[in-house]
Design a protein around this nucleic acid. Sequence first.
RNA 1: GGCCUUAUCGUCUAACGGUUAGGACGCGGCCUUUUCAAGGCUGCAAUCCGGGUUCGAUUCCCGGUAAGGUCACCA
Length: 490
Amino acid sequence: MQEKNQKVVTRFAPSPTGFMHIGGVRTALFAYLYARKNNGTFILRIEDTDKEREVPGSIKHIQESLTWLGIDWDFGPDKHGDFGSTIQSERLPTYIEYAHKLIEKGLAYPDPYTQEELAEFRKKADEEKRPFLYRDYRPEVFEKWDGKKPLRFKVPEIKRYKWNDVVRGELEAGEEALDDFILIKSDGYPTYNFAHIIDDLNMGVTHIMRGDEFISSTPRFLSLYNALEIEPPIFVSLPPILRDDRTKKLGKRDGAKDILEYREEGYLPEAMLNFLALIGWNPGTEQEIFTKDELIKAFDINKIQKAGGAFNEEKLDWMNKEHLRKLPVETVRDEISNRLKKNPTIGENEKLNDRNFLAKISDIVMDHISKWSDIDIMVGAGEIEYFFESPQYDHTLLYWKGNEDKETTKKHLEWVIETLKSADESFDSSDKVKSLIFDYATENGRGEVLWPLRVSLSGKEKSPDPFTLIYVLGRDESIKRITDAIGKLL
RNA sequence: GGCCUUAUCGUCUAACGGUUAGGACGCGGCCUUUUCAAGGCUGCAAUCCGGGUUCGAUUCCCGGUAAGGUCACCA
């Protein structure tokens, strides 16, 4: 097995076939955490050997996604190593070189069949309800490879393979899993099966972290490691992230979102990392909220889960809220201010340029959101507008419990106005007015006094308490609104 | 169909033969200066089924069942 003192090298090796989603990020995260935990190296390798499926811009997108999340790499598309490029399409000569080594050993040969012929073989196997094995059709005599035909690996030995997986323990698989798979495609590009083994060798990868869908093909990899006389790295098979209903693996076809959409929605990268780390892994303690550095410190591959876990957005929201609360106040104010300024309904309001005002409402807003985009939802629901403009509402809302007692309601509101008027200008920084009003409310019925007062200020059935509203609106605006409310009672 | 893997509250998970099966999200209730939010307290809720091994199984073994993966010139 591996040398004890060998430096840990892990890699994340996506194919540039589109955006990154939750599953890919989680795989990247585990490989990253393990490398950082061990002061090792983390490589971002681009497996772009399928030119048909490649989506332009994917590489940039992947880098942008990882960067947003704070997952930094030591070697990647923008930084070559001693081993050369981390982009597979730029490493073609290496694969060909290894292919020739195998040919020399008599362990690789060109595939003489056409796609149609292979399809026939497969169809036949399917009809006979048995798995298709190419090696049953392996040619007796190998032609010389011209680089035009696909090059296949000749499995040297059909046997059961046993191996160890850090997560799954002892694994083994039968002869059915072994076959003469393709090493180099007819377009000259290597397959994943071949390329990743060569790259991992050349890049010194010590631990392969990847989804458990590769477990079934591990015997094939093992036979190739054998043929090339390579010591296999350590396998760490990660459990799948399931769809919310747990019916299947979360995939792009099942609505798995582009990770950058979470950025647009206003989730914090650290919350995403925290949340994803806890699907398929646990720290062994009851701590749930982690910063990135705390995750690195706590990460332990021996605590990776075997079973798949569902992605639950409600818990993500909760977790994001927890992280939101740890943000410095200035950051929060800036973000809230930016969001509000972009909002079509109140974005133009000049109060948004008032730092003092923003400071006041940001505390309120923070108590109501779990992610930044919730601010827009609050505005849409009319939960913020009344801080900016006098509210429109029906006078019946002013009565506590629908009790249409105009005289009493009016009396209470007038009392509050008088109290506010008697307060000095800097009243909103003291608790004096608050306690006066509160004492009055205690004597005269809290609901009877506080409900109409609050409605007169916000015009809403639900809103922050009247003292907070007075604090934000200021004395004069409050008096004006309460006066308006009294007007409505007539 | 062959091969492989997995299985604890609705969800994320802890417990690596002995616990009243723990925590968290969500949900319900109560409290806190009316309503909402936040906060505090609290409640409901799980070992897939059947056999073994054992004084004792969530835990070990076997068999079912269910789910997932894989059998590509995709990764």
